[in-house]
Nucleic acid binder design. Structure first.
Length: 275
DNA sequence: ATGGTTGTAGGACAA
């Protein structure tokens, strides 16, 4: 094994309140030993973020962007990173994005890591009558424009909750889900445009191709959904071409959804060679 | 699967 470099493990998770999910985070960290945590829906102001608890776990590099009660993202790492800040997508500063550069010793470029929490979009899939749905579509359109502008040489990884189940087999009930926000034809086509614009590679579907199901979220509102395998894929790990040679493995830590008082999302793990 | 459960706050929203 001489010369091989241990991969860097990036775990992305919509925790639905970082304070409520601290015990689950500790358990996930012990089980999977990630080097980097990308969290969505932290639901906490920055001055109340449990920084010390993450430092105690070894995550001393901390980029957080939160607000009271809603949204909020964080990137926490064992090794120092360079903060790239947050972009005000579609003109709003609502704490849905953070980016950092993971530094590499041997490589020319570091790896850019982006943590996203795309708006859910409310209940009614009609942008003329539901401002939340319109805002979600605008966010995806902004993401597409941004994707086109990105240089091709920097290795770039996008993780997080995109709140769209892209493919037919990313939901357990495609036929009926097409009428619901999160799986409408319009959202799915916007997601396709976004993917094409960035040349993003869908790492999960590279390892688990359709028609196999792939779900990362199971609704709280139907308590048997997880046990019955009735989920949606809302969480992604996406790499540009320059990042692809670094990708070692992608997995889903699905069992966390089966624990007591779980998040409704499961953690997505990406192993990357940084060195 | 238009009902249901969860989190933040301590009522009504957001998801």
């Amino acid at each position: 094994m001489g010369g091989t470099v241990k991969p860097t493990r990036i775990l992305s998770w919509n925790v639905n309140s970082v304070r409520r999910r601290l015990p689950h985070l500790v358990r996930v960290v012990r089980a999977t030993a990630p080097d980097v945590l990308c969290l969505q829906e932290t639901k906490v102001r920055d001055d109340a973020f449990p920084r010390a608890e993450f430092s105690a776990l070894g995550y001393n590099a901390q980029a957080i962007s939160g607000q009271p009660a809603y949204n909020g993202v964080a990137i926490l790492a064992k090794a120092a990173f360079t903060s790239l800040g947050a972009k005000a997508w579609r003109g709003h500063d609502d704490k849905r994005h953070l980016a950092v550069r993971l530094e590499t010793k041997d490589a020319l470029h570091g790896v850019e890591l982006h943590c996203f929490y795309v708006p859910s979009g409310g209940g009614l899939p009609d942008r003329t009558r539901n401002a939340k749905f319109d805002d979600k579509l605008r966010f995806m359109e902004a993401l597409t424009r941004w994707s086109k502008r990105q240089d091709k040489t920097t290795p770039r990884l996008l993780v997080g909750d995109f709140n769209i189940a892209w493919l037919e087999h990313d939901v357990w009930n495609h036929k009926t889900a097409r009428r619901a926000v999160g799986h409408t034809d319009l959202e799915r086509s916007l997601f396709s445009r976004f993917m094409e614009a960035g040349g993003w590679c869908d790492l999960q579907r590279r390892s688990v191709p359709a028609p196999d199901p792939y779900y990362t979220w199971w609704s709280y509102r139907h308590p048997t959904a997880h046990a019955q395998g009735r989920g949606w894929r809302l969480d992604y790990t996406l790499a540009n071409q320059a990042c692809l040679p670094r990708v070692v493995d992608v997995s889903l830590y699905k069992r966390a959804r089966g624990w007591k008082t779980p998040s409704d999302h499961a953690p997505v793990i990406t192993d990357l060679t940084l060195g």
